[in-house]
Structures are given as C-alpha cells and as structure tokens.
C-alpha cells in the first residue's frame, strides 16, 4: 500500500512537471519488483546499555569513539554520532533506549528533498547522497523526529544520519549495530519483525507495554521499538500523527497541475474580453 501511494505521488509530480516544463521524463521511478522493506527491532527490555552498537557504528563509519553514558544527560545524534544509547529512569525500572533515524516507510525528508539526495531505497534504508544534495536543510525542517544533522562548521558540509548500513545490506550483510548487539537490536524484514514483536508481547504481557512504536507512527517506520513502559517515559514523541508526513503536502501538490491548466486560459479569456470593449486603448508594452 505504502509503495503504491509513493509511486502515485511521484507519478503525479512527474505529470505536474510535464505540464509545467513541457518536457516528459516519465521513465523515472518505477520500482517494479515489490521487495519488502528491511527494518530493525529494538527491544528495550533486553538492552543492558553496553554501547556495543554505538561502538560498532563508530568503527564501521570511521567516527570517533562514543562517550560513556551519563546519568541525566540525554544524548542526541549529531554530526559525529549516528545512533545513541540513552538511559531513562522510568516507572518500572531503569531502561536503556537507542535513538537513531527511524527509516520511515514514507519519509518526510525524502519527500521534502528537491534533488532526491534523501532517498528511500527499495531495501528499506533512507540514505543521503552527497553528489545530489545542495544543503538546503529542508529535510531537517520536515523530519518529525529531527534526525538529519548538518555540519554547520564546514565549507563543504554534509548531512549526517544513520543509513542502516545500506552499503552492507546490498552486499548481504547486516547493519553494524545489529551485528554488534547481542539480542536487543535485531535486523530482518519489517513484516517478520512486527510478527516477532507481537509474539513477544503476547508471550510476556506483564513484561511489555502493549504497543510497538514504529508500527503506525508517521505512517510506519523501519525502526521498531518494544518497551516495558509507555513510550513517553523514554522521551518519545507520542503525539506524532499515525499517517505519513508527505500526506500533509499532497493536497497542495495535487492542485498545482489543475492551476496550471485552468488559470492561464482564464486569464487569457479575461484579457480578450476586456480588450474587445476598448479597441482603441489597446497598448501592451
């Protein structure tokens, strides 16, 4: 369903552009084969805060060694940190939770990107492509999770965020973080992981909060969470909408082709009508 909607949006955009520029490039974007999105499942009941995932990530991407977890300091992903482990004191117990890019099914950042530098791959990861990016930071404005980070102190800045180790995935390997972790962070297809998460909740209802964060939020994400406590307690924004964010600007984009078809003839008609009334005063310049 999500793929269909995405394609529809693209097709419409291309149609709009065709009307606008009078140039067809309809051949673009037909992900014919329906591969399943890959995803990660983080189970907060299992995480012991060992930071193996952070270390593996830093090693895989040539980033500096991660700092230790400190009490009462909520770390955020940054220009040098693609994923972080944070520690929360909650109503049930102390809980460690991992924060990183959610890899939405319909990412706001990719819909926002005017050069397709932010791109939802057919494998599932949302990746950033340097050669296309112009550094406008509209992805950062649009991302409901505030994930993309920008190098403000560089003359040739990059956008940084987790890419779910896309280069490893297409070679058949699994993301570095999931490899580094024991069982708190597992990798698989999104469908399998949701089934697994449901199974865990059903098996131990007293251990789990009965919800999978990421199943519905923002139209579904590629990072799924299980938690022993309500997700607000882990610093999650639970007020985010459950429909996808690109939906929000869809209505506007839909009106563009119509305006482009309807307005010029109308203006021309008014122009002609007002002209015939005063044939002598006609003066364009």
């Amino acid at each position: 369903m999500s793929i269909d909607r995405r394609n529809f949006l693209k097709t419409l955009g291309v149609a709009g552009m065709t009307l606008t520029v009078g140039k067809g490039f309809g051949s673009a974007n037909k992900d014919g084969d329906q591969t399943e999105f890959n995803a990660l499942l983080f189970d907060a009941t299992m995480c012991i805060g060992c930071q193996s995932c952070e270390k593996a990530c830093a090693k895989a991407h040539g980033l500096p060694e991660p700092e230790e977890i400190e009490l009462d300091v909520i770390k955020k992903t940054s220009e040098t940190r693609r994923g972080v482990i944070n520690y929360h004191t909650t109503s049930k117990d102390d809980v460690y939770v991992r924060n990183q890019c959610m890899h939405c099914n319909e990412p706001a950042c990719a819909a926002a990107c005017l050069t397709q530098a932010m791109y939802k791959t057919k494998e599932g990861p949302v990746i950033w492509r340097e050669d296309k990016c112009m550094g406008c930071r509209y992805c950062m404005v649009s991302c409901p999770f505030d994930v993309p980070k920008f190098e403000y102190h560089s003359a040739n800045p990059k956008i940084l965020k987790c890419d779910m180790c896309h280069d490893r995935i297409i070679q058949g390997e699994i993301p570095a973080c999931a490899e580094g972790c024991g069982d708190a962070l597992i990798y698989g297809t999104r469908r399998e992981l949701i089934a697994e998460a449901r199974k865990r909740i059903a098996a131990e209802p007293e251990l789990y909060y009965p919800e999978i964060y990421g199943e519905d939020v923002a139209g579904g994400t590629g990072l799924l969470y299980l938690s022993p406590v309500p997700f607000e307690e882990l610093g999650f924004n639970t007020k985010l909408q459950n429909t996808s964010y690109p939906e929000l600007s869809k209505g506007f984009l839909y009106t563009v082709p119509s305006v482009f078809v309807l307005l010029p003839p109308l203006l021309l008609a008014i122009h002609e009508a007002t002209k015939s009334n005063q044939p002598k005063e006609e003066d364009h310049e």
């Binding site: 005017l114 050069t115 296309k132 990016c133 040739n156």
Partner: peptide, 22 residues
Amino acid sequence: LGKPWNVVNPIIGNSFGTSSVL
C-alpha cells in the same frame, strides 16, 4: 545553501525531487 554549487541539480540533470514543494 550548504552546497550552493549543487543548486543546478533540481534544474538540470536527473535529480528531480518531484514530490517536493521546494
């Protein structure tokens, strides 16, 4: 723009982000 030299990407080339309002 962080990379103003890439400003031509949405105009020429094959990087059309047609679903973007921008």
